[in-house]
Simulated scan of single mutants.
Amino acid sequence: MSVMTRAAMSRRAMLGAIATTPLWMQSAWAQPNNLKISHQFPGGSIAQGDFRDRLCRMFAADVERRTRGGLKFSIYPGSTLMGPNAQFPALRSGALDMALVPLSYAGTDAPEANIGLMPGLVTSYEQGYAWKNAPVGRELTRILNEQGLVVVSWIWQAGGVASRGKPILHPEDVAGLKVRGGSHEMDRLLLDAGATVVNMPSNEIQAAMRAGTLDAALTSSTSLMSFRLQDTSRSLTTARGGAYWFMFEPLMMSRTVFDRLSKQQQAAVMAVGADLETFALRAARADDAAVAAVYQATGARVVDLNAEALRKWQSIARANAWREFGERNGNCAKLLELAEQSIAMI
């Protein structure tokens, strides 16, 4: 008997065995999808730690339960899988399965992403979360989907300003300082106010402030604590009284990966992601309040943004940051128009 004949008989025997094997046993042979979730924030547990890490762990546990182990997850906090800025290209190519990442980090390659950190455009959680089902949110979802990204959980975070010197309350307070903004448009706002802009992801802020290469940084209330910026700050401006810094920081899945899932698995992923938005909103608000006590305990001076200061920042943002964003391409123009319509409806 030839080698080819024996191989053909072996293949037929294998296929016959599979055909006669009960379905429950066939499914037992199948290995579950083990998906990787990356983020830059400190790791913890479901019960304790940075709420963004907790959300990823809650998501993984609930989806695994709903899919009866058909989907499993490995979580890589603290940029242990890849750097913050590498996550979006990896998601688009399918090299990374999921990430919880500030949308504006994709702004260099996809300017539309900077709508997620547009100074003074979103000024409340109610406004930000209303985007999801509003025309602006549907348009953003469409654009991201075309770019290979699926938004699983809508997460918004308000932010404040940690400073090595005096509190940063009014635009004139940043004049002459080296400041981190977090997006191209935030940087433009700071430049217009007289600051020197320093670009870096949030997990690099503390080292820069300690070294003196950064005087102040805008970032989320959660990151103000998780990255222990209180250790290098003498002042804090909180988001308790309002904020011109609201960041869209979604949990996302690669569209390539999402499309490989069964319909039932896709439904579980999206359902759990939506369910966790309530947790994210509650946790972000709690951190907006908690951050003040954390900084006060170190002797830092704590102030809240007021309505007058917010109007000043918005006026500067409209003049250049918003205008320049709208001029970048047709998608940006439409997103800005829809976002401004949502403001008018509030």
Rank of each mutant, 00 (worst) to 15 (best):
S2V: 04
M4L: 13
T5Q: 12
A7E: 12
G16K: 13
G16Y: 09
T20D: 14
T20F: 12
T20G: 12
Q26L: 14
S27E: 15
N34E: 13
N34T: 13
I37T: 09
F41T: 10
G44F: 07
F51Y: 15
R57T: 06
R57H: 06
M58C: 00
M58L: 13
V63G: 03
E64V: 01
R65S: 09
R66N: 04
G70E: 08
M82L: 12
A86F: 10
Q87A: 08
F88N: 05
R92Y: 07
S93Y: 05
G94C: 03
A95V: 05
D97F: 04
M98C: 15
A99H: 11
V101E: 15
P111S: 07
L117E: 08
L117P: 05
G120C: 06
L121Y: 10
L121D: 03
E126L: 10
Y129N: 10
A130S: 15
W131E: 04
W131P: 03
N133G: 10
R138M: 12
R138Y: 03
L140V: 02
I143M: 00
N145F: 09
G148Y: 00
V151Q: 15
W154K: 06
G159Y: 06
G160Y: 04
A162W: 00
A162D: 08
A162S: 08
A162H: 08
S163T: 02
S163E: 03
S163D: 02
G165P: 03
G165E: 10
A175D: 04
G176W: 04
L177V: 00
G182A: 01
G182E: 02
S183A: 06
M186G: 00
D192M: 05
D192P: 04
T196S: 11
P201R: 02
E204V: 00
M209W: 01
G212H: 02
D215V: 01
S221H: 09
T222Q: 13
T222F: 09
D231M: 09
S233W: 04
S235Q: 01
L236P: 00
T237D: 08
G241F: 00
G241V: 00
Y244D: 07
M247P: 02
F248R: 06
P250Y: 00
T256A: 13
Q265W: 07
D275R: 13
E277N: 08
T278F: 14
R282D: 14
A283V: 03
A286G: 11
A286S: 15
V291I: 09
A292K: 10
G299A: 07
A300P: 00
R301A: 10
L305H: 06
N306D: 14
N306R: 09
L310C: 00
K312F: 06
S315C: 05
S315Q: 14
W322F: 08
F325N: 03
F325G: 01
R328K: 13
R328P: 02
N329I: 01
N331R: 14
A333Q: 12
A333C: 01
E337T: 10
A339W: 09
E340S: 08
M345G: 10
